[in-house]
Write a protein that binds this DNA or RNA. Structure first.
Lengths: 139, 139
DNA sequence: CTACCGGTTCAAGCGAGCTTGAAGTCATTG
DNA sequence: CAATGACTTCAAGCTCGCTTGAACCGGTAG
């Protein structure tokens, strides 16, 4: 049984973050010994999931849905699957954007432009078509 | 010559955002007519660059360096290239994380687990090795 | 017994990225 | 001339994801 400090040290975050996660429903309320939180080792799995999802661009709100075990009162893993299904295209879109960015970065390493928008790298002609380009997806 | 309202409408953001970008140095100060800002169409290119970089996870601070034409007082595009070089691996890492997330989402659509961490999909055994896993990269 | 260490709560603060509101300016329209 | 509407500045507010500080509690060591 680990104290919040142990968990924090091993997971590489601050106790305050762990309490915060608990407050917003990302972590379950642990049992307590004399008022103090005691954690089981599988809290690390949970934290790792949270972190990964966070790095993948999910909000804590979304992660809460991902991660919390809607115990009864819910169809099944249907809720989680629904979210996953909804999120997949977003993740794909994100990957695409990042790959575009990657290309831009890489190609711009090879040219002499002073600024990004003075540079042809983007494939945009720097004016004219720009307004069309400007409304790509973001909504 | 476009007013700030025109630009905002066409770019899909609010005038306040445009003024904000100007304040933090993402957009150059436009000329003014009777105190009001007037923009050239190439502002849309700039805005599109900003948006893309933002979606790719750059902070406005970084984008400022990316986008602003450090006119004199700077070696060349060296500064921008330096940033690009520094950012490339980060972008790559981000892409990798997203692909992991994608895999998790996709595979979890195919299993019956109620929660993510009850599920084997992650490849983590749900305890034991977790603490090791927990410290992947984040720093 | 006292000190100290690490836990506890709660409210407030912070940085990023904007938005909102108040108060004023300016051009056009009736 | 007065009203309208889009602009202006400036300061303050808001959301997210935490952190920090004040004040307190409990267990162990000297």
């Amino acid at each position: 049984m680990l104290t919040i400090g142990d968990v924090a040290r091993q997971a590489g975050l601050r106790p305050s973050a762990i309490r915060y996660y608990e407050r917003v429903g990302l972590l379950p309320e642990p049992h307590r010994v004399g008022g103090q939180r005691r954690y089981d080792r599988d809290v690390f799995t949970r934290i790792a999931v949270i972190r990964m999802a966070q790095e993948a661009g999910f909000t804590l709100e979304e992660i809460r849905t991902l991660v919390s075990g809607f115990p009864e009162a819910t169809p099944a893993g249907d809720r989680w699957r629904a979210l996953a299904r909804r999120k997949l295209p977003e993740v794909d879109a994100m990957i695409l954007r990042l790959m575009t960015m990657r290309r831009v970065l890489e190609e711009s390493l090879m040219c002499d432009c002073l600024t990004l928008d003075a540079c042809g790298v983007l494939g945009w002609s720097s004016a004219g078509t720009a307004s069309t380009q400007a409304k790509t997806d973001l909504g």
